[in-house]
Write a protein that binds this DNA or RNA. Structure first.
Length: 587
RNA sequence: GCGCCCGUAGCUCAGUUGGAUAGAGCAACGGACUUCUAAUCCGUAGGUCGUAGGUUCGAAUCCUACCGGGCGUACCA
């Protein structure tokens, strides 16, 4: 086996090593046993082993009926070691492969230089169109920390899917209809008629949110208010002009407020729907399903599906009075999206309290025989608890998203003030905003989405340890060094001068990046990337304290280290961007 | 009751989908700035991976039972 060699150098992409090593092993197996065997992917050896790849021989042991350690030894002995491998060693049942450091360095750094921010991305388009629905708030109150988790998670997943070559449609559906908004409307008519967010100097969503809380307080004194809200909902459904006009005004206020919050978070939607337009969808599908015997009509006229055979319960799909339910709409919206948007997959970013709902929904898709039924996924994420317990909008025990972002920005301004680096006035605010947002986003994304977050105000405000600021700081440091060097040489680099343990560790870690992106996207789990970036930043900081870059001595070493540092900065910056965190260049 | 999720250091979490001696951060203590950003780094200490069985060359990871916590189990959303 020969590799492409040009100018005496080996040209190999970081993602190609795995295949080459599998082939080496397979060839060696043929030589030793005469058998052709499928070799599985090499694994990553533990830190104590000085190698990039390891192959455990247990599978072969079963297949060939030999002791794993014996196989390992035999395979190594009969292996033709290519020039890019520094060593191949059998250690017990494992075969460890170590690359020639210069080959590793050239492969990784060159590819990062060539691909830039897109290093580690899949180069070819998948041809798959994926709709990701996220955020989908009720329009009766401002966004809180729970929504924040949803938005941050949704955006990160969207970016990760794009990096895997999918055509992604970020979508949301505003729940602008129903009893919740009517409650706020009743409160407005009773207690705030004629007032506007402007007269209170408030954002529209906060203004309406206060009315919603007000309704709940007043209702305790005057329970008849609830009936008034229900009456208003009936008037709304009938299309009463006056009610509709008020509703339009108030939902517009809320949506304006949302837009400001979304802009600040960085949430973007390509496909926006309103429940007021979609809540009647799905009824024809259900009526059609009755004709085909998928659903059953009960004596009172309500329509049901029996899912007990599938380990679920019976579920109502249409009320006895013919009106729709939450699931009716979801059914109709999904069918419409697959039909009109030409999508191949749909992902719903919705909290874990709705796991059952989506199991039922997807099962109904299957019962209806939709070809896309198995291409729907529910990305469920854990709840966010406060030290006081669960957040409740009506009781005001929430962490408001706008307030949170303000607090984080102010915190970082304070730390910037104490820092030894002085940032020019005209950039200070935007950097503080980026650090504040980065802190809270990273705090959310570093957790596995499945897990509940017990929001710890102190930890979330922290800028040390595994935090967004730590990673941003690493990036800012590198950029600062590059600014001082005022050059990064991109060709004819003496990669063989990079052989310090910290340099090898960094290069090995950079080598893992494409795989991290791939698995984070496949599992819809940005915490994989979050953890990886923290580790990368940590490794760089260790390198940085132990070695000089600009005073490295020889020009060759300075240029090689600048190239390495620049490659790290590119990956940190690209990774943070995928997480929706801004990689600042000074702080 | 039934279903799903979680249980790893004092606290908050990782753990490459079953692989080598279980790792970080925070908090505590002790060190390192005349040197490229100290929002940094180094060291010390901390473990019956909820419990008990099972599966196999090998288990924090898989299967079973139990214990503890959470969320569901609406003609609510």
């Amino acid at each position: 086996m020969r590799l492409m060699v040009s100018n005496g150098r080996i040209e190999m992409r970081p993602t190609e090593w795995n295949q080459q090593i599998r082939k080496l092993i397979a060839d060696s197996v043929i030589r030793v046993t005469g058998r052709s065997v499928e070799i599985s992917e090499p694994v990553q050896p533990p830190d104590t082993v000085n190698a990039e790849f390891a192959y455990p021989c247990f599978e072969l042991a079963r297949l060939l009926k030999m002791a794993p350690a014996v196989i390992a030894r035999h395979l190594v002995e009969s292996m033709t070691v290519p020039s890019w491998l520094g060593s191949v060693e059998a250690e017990g049942p494992y075969i460890n492969f170590r690359l020639v450091p210069a080959c590793l360095a050239e492969s990784v750094v060159t590819d990062i230089f060539e691909r830039g921010d897109r290093f580690g991305w899949l180069e070819t388009q998948s041809g798959r169109r994926v709709l990701v629905e996220y955020s989908s708030p009720n329009t009766n109150k401002p966004l809180h920390l729970g929504h924040f988790r949803n938005n941050v998670l949704g955006m990160a997943v969207i970016n990760l899917l794009k990096a895997q070559g999918h055509d992604v449609i970020p979508a949301t559906i505003l729940n602008d209809r129903g009893i919740h908004i009517c409650k706020a409307m009743v409160a407005y008519r009773r207690f705030a008629a004629g007032e506007t967010p402007g007269t209170h100097g408030m954002k529209g969503d906060h203004f309406v949110g206060e009315l919603y809380v007000r309704f709940d307080q007043e209702m305790r004194k005057a329970p008849e208010l609830l009936e008034e809200a229900h009456a208003m909902l009936r008037d709304w459904e009938r299309g009463d002009p006056e009610v509709r006009a008020l509703w339009r005004r108030m939902t517009a206020w809320v949506e304006e407020g949302f837009e400001a919050t979304y802009r600040r978070i960085g949430s973007v939607f390509q496909h926006v729907q309103h429940e007021s337009d979609t809540y009647l969808l799905g009824r024809e599908i259900i009526l059609g399903g009755v004709d085909r015997g998928v659903f059953e009509r009960r004596d009172d006229g309500s329509l049901w599906i029996d899912l007990t055979a599938d380990g679920l319960d019976a579920k109502a799909l249409l009320r006895s009075d013919g009106t729709s339910l939450y699931i009716t709409q979801d059914l109709g919206v999904a069918a419409e999206r697959f039909r009109h948007l030409d999508i191949d997959e749909a992902i719903y970013v919705v909290g874990s309290e709705q796991i059952y709902h989506f199991r039922v929904l997807f099962e109904i898709f299957r019962k209806l025989g939709y070809s896309w039924a198995d291409r729907c996924r529910h990305l469920s994420y854990g709840m966010v608890y406060l030290p006081e317990g669960k957040m409740k909008s009506r009781e005001g025990t929430v962490v408001d998203a706008d307030d949170l972002m303000d607090r984080m920005r102010d915190m970082s301004l304070k730390v910037m003030h104490e820092s030894k680096v002085s940032v020019p006035d005209d950039r200070r605010d935007s950097i503080a905003e980026a650090i504040g947002l980065g802190a809270i986003k990273y705090y959310i994304l570093k957790f596995n989405p499945q897990k509940d977050i017990h929001f710890d105000p102190e930890q979330s405000l922290a800028f040390d340890g595994a935090t967004g600021a730590y990673i941003q700081y690493c990036h800012a440091r590198i950029r600062s060094v590059i600014r001082k060097a005022s050059r990064v040489i991109r060709s004819n680099i003496r990669f063989d001068s990079l052989n310090a343990p910290e340099e090898i560790a960094l290069l090995r870690w950079l080598l893992r990046y494409p795989g991290v992106l791939q698995s984070a996207a496949a599992d819809l789990n940005p915490s994989r990337l979050a953890g990886y970036l923290w580790e990368l930043a940590r490794m760089f900081n260790v390198f940085y304290t132990n070695h000089r870059i600009l005073d490295a001595g020889s020009t060759e070493l300075i240029d090689a280290r600048l190239a390495l540092a620049s490659a790290v900065a590119t990956v940190v910056s690209g990774g943070l961007t995928l997480l929706g965190i801004e990689p600042v260049t000074e702080m």
